[in-house]
């Protein structure tokens, strides 16, 4: 079973120690991704979804961050890598697509040159070979007139095209796992669909494994095989996208699904809401972090955080409720 898991995250906790008091942004997260599978990490601000993703590439400032647990990618424990090994790992085994390509791409070099360098950093090939491969990548991500666009600077491209270039850069060294951090959030609706379809096609064609971080359940439904719903640093529900969408078991997931101002709803009628604000990580309640916002809260929720339990095939939930049909208040 574990053999075909390209990525496993075990008991991952991430604590930021830079501030006046330590903040535990990720708390005992377990997840895995099979070869060729897409997992969506869904959550709102402060849920720890991006922090989890960034720890897989060890992108956090090591001096101000404590990482506990194990991250095993393609057989190597990422937490033990250092120096050269870490550089080889980044981009080659696992690479990442960011939300804002303008910040992730270097403004002073052409995108073609950046892709060339990424290739040559990992493989000893000639400039010409690298250029040919970069051109091929640009064709793959469907950038029109790719030859010319390789010599463009990031600011000369439109938002959607920059994101395509960013994806080409991430794929430069044929990684096995692609991490995507809200790659479509900053894009217009008509462009978002294009990028989602592109990522889905590339993932299928290349047999990539993907972790896709998003705050939009609609995006998760569009690309993911499985969904992990995060809240206050924990995975509160994990399961196949169909099951989570159709029979959500955690009151938070139920709430997220019902608060969407969605087509069928009569306009002008009040929306069901989840009361309260997203959690303050510096001041989490004891017990279940969702308890203060939950309508079905019981006394034991406030004292002890519920363990993950199975509620279906590959569907787990951290909630003691047996019948989660009760939505939030």
């Amino acid at each position: 079973m574990t053999k075909d898991k390209i990525l496993r995250v075990e008991q991952l906790s991430v604590t930021f120690t830079g501030g006046t008091k330590p903040v535990r942004a990720v708390d005992n997260v377990d997840l895995d991704v099979a070869r060729g599978e897409v997992l969506a990490l869904l959550g709102e601000s402060g849920s720890g979804k991006s922090v989890t993703l960034r720890s897989i590439l060890r992108l956090h400032n090591e001096k101000r961050t404590r990482i506990d647990g194990r991250i095993i990618a393609d057989g190597t424990d990422v937490t033990l890598l250092d120096g050269d090994a870490l550089s080889r790992f980044r981009g080659k085994t696992v690479s990442m697509v960011f939300q804002e390509p303008m910040l992730a791409l270097d403004p002073v070099y052409t995108v073609g040159r950046q892709i060339n360098e990424a290739i040559r950093r990992h493989e000893s090939v000639s400039q010409d070979t690298a250029r040919t491969r970069a051109l091929h990548l640009f064709e793959r991500v469907r950038i029109p007139s790719p030859e010319r666009r390789l010599d463009s600077y990031p600011h000369e491209m439109s938002g959607g095209m920059r994101q395509r270039a960013m994806i080409a850069l991430a794929l430069a060294c044929s990684p096995k796992v692609l991490l995507a951090d809200e790659p479509t959030t900053a894009l217009d609706a008509t462009v978002q669909v294009q990028i989602l379809l592109l990522l889905r096609d590339l993932q299928r064609e290349l047999g990539l494994s993907m972790i896709f971080v998003t705050h939009d359940i609609g995006v998760a439904v569009e690309v993911a095989d499985r969904v992990a719903v995060m809240y206050a640093g924990r995975i509160v529900e994990l399961g196949p996208v169909r099951d989570v969408l159709r029979t959500p078991r955690h009151p938070y997931t139920v709430g997220l699904l019902s608060t969407r101002a969605h087509g069928g709803r009569l306009s002008g009628n009040r929306l069901p809401t989840i009361p309260g604000s997203p959690p303050d990580l510096t001041n989490l309640p004891a017990g279940c972090a969702f308890a203060p916002r939950c309508s079905s809260v019981t006394e034991s929720c406030r004292t002890k955080a519920p363990e993950a339990r199975a509620v279906g095939a590959g569907h787990t939930v951290r909630c003691i409720l047996q019948h989660p049909t009760v939505g939030p208040k």
Partner: peptide, 27 residues
């Protein structure tokens, strides 16, 4: 029509298969 066609499906069995528009909005 294209804008409406870009709305996400919210249905894992009937996902979007085609983007209604290509490219970005022009300058």
């Amino acid at each position: 029509t294209a804008l409406l066609g870009s709305l996400l499906s919210m249905d894992p069995d009937n996902r979007r298969t085609q983007a209604p528009l290509a490219g970005d909005p022009p300058n």
